Amino acid sequence: MKELNRRAFLTLTGAALAMMALAACGADDVPAVPPAPAAPTSKEAELVAAINKVWKKKFDASQVTHEQLTLNQDAQGAIKIQGGIFENAKEPVHTLTADDWKAMYDVNEWKISLEKKYDLGGAAGISEPTGEDGNMEISLTFEYSCEDAVIQKFVDKIMKYSLSREAEFISIYCPVVQGKTYMIATVFWNKTA
């Protein structure tokens, strides 16, 4: 399997989710749309409610376009693949293996599928990779919490990417690793053209 450098990794994983907004791919030979994700768990719904409290403050300050984010699990498949890497490895900090790289290609299939319908924005919950190209490490960055201070940092991470201000939807995944629940999210909106 071809080794990927940091830039290729960020593109395939959507910049560890955040770079999903970059690099439009050709859609002529796109595979069928992946199956719809399962209904949200109570943790996911609770997390969206907490995020929307912070999002509303950003809307009131004219920092975002929409007053709240609607839970839309269309993008959950991509973040679930990434969360699954940690769940399978049973560790919240993980050095990527050849099998992980293969799984990352599935993220790209979701990205191509999503870009037909949505514009993709920022994300939070997984670090950008560190280390050398052949020995790259990623980590889950947010333990699950609906506390205001944690959610503020989580939303700030999503908002680090300027396109996120247009977001109207959010997908959430809460992987469980070593008995702890973590949170991963990505935001997006309907294509206008």
Rank of each mutant, 00 (worst) to 15 (best):
Ile79Ala: 01
Met1Leu: 10
Gln73Ser: 03
Glu168Leu: 10
Tyr161Glu: 14
Lys153Ile: 00
Ser162His: 07
Lys111Trp: 07
Lys153Leu: 00
Lys160Asp: 15
Val155Glu: 09
Gln178Arg: 08
Glu115Ala: 09
Ile79Arg: 02
Ile158His: 09
Gly122Tyr: 00
Ala39Lys: 08
Asn72Glu: 01
Phe142Thr: 09
Ser171Glu: 09
Leu69Pro: 02
Ser139Met: 07
Pro129Val: 02
Gln68Asn: 13
Asp60Cys: 00
Val177Arg: 06
Pro34Met: 09
Met183Cys: 08
Ala124Ile: 02
Val30Arg: 11
Ala39Thr: 12
Glu128Leu: 11
Ala45Ser: 14
Glu166Phe: 13
Ala23His: 12
Arg6Val: 03
Ile79Ser: 00
Gly125Thr: 04
Val30Pro: 03
Ala124Lys: 13
Lys57Arg: 15
Met20Gln: 14
Ala36Asn: 05
Ala123Arg: 08
Lys2Leu: 15
Met1Ala: 11
Pro35Asp: 11
Gly26Glu: 07
Asp99Ile: 02
Asn88Met: 05
Ala149Ile: 01
Asp106Thr: 11
Ala50Leu: 08
Phe142Val: 07
Met136Glu: 05
Thr95Ala: 03
Lys57Pro: 00
Ala75Asn: 06
Trp110Phe: 15
Gln76Leu: 00
Ile170Glu: 03
Ala123Met: 03
Gly84Asn: 13
Glu87Met: 09
Met20Cys: 12
Gln63Tyr: 03
Ser62Gly: 06
Val187Asn: 06
Gly121Val: 04
Asp133Thr: 03
Thr13His: 07
Ile151Val: 15
Ala8Trp: 09
Lys43Tyr: 15
Thr97Gln: 11
Gly134Cys: 06
Ser42Ala: 12
Ser127Phe: 08
Asn190Trp: 10
Ala78Ile: 02
Asn135Leu: 01
Lys80Arg: 15
Lys56Ile: 00
Ile138Ala: 06
Glu46Lys: 04
Ile170Lys: 13
Val64Pro: 01
Gly122Pro: 10
Lys102Ala: 08
Ser145Gly: 07
Glu67Cys: 00
Tyr118Glu: 03
Pro35Phe: 12
His66Met: 06
Gly134Ala: 13
Thr95Ser: 04
Thr181Met: 02
Val33Arg: 15
Val30Ile: 11
Thr70Lys: 10
Ile158Asn: 09
Ile51Val: 15
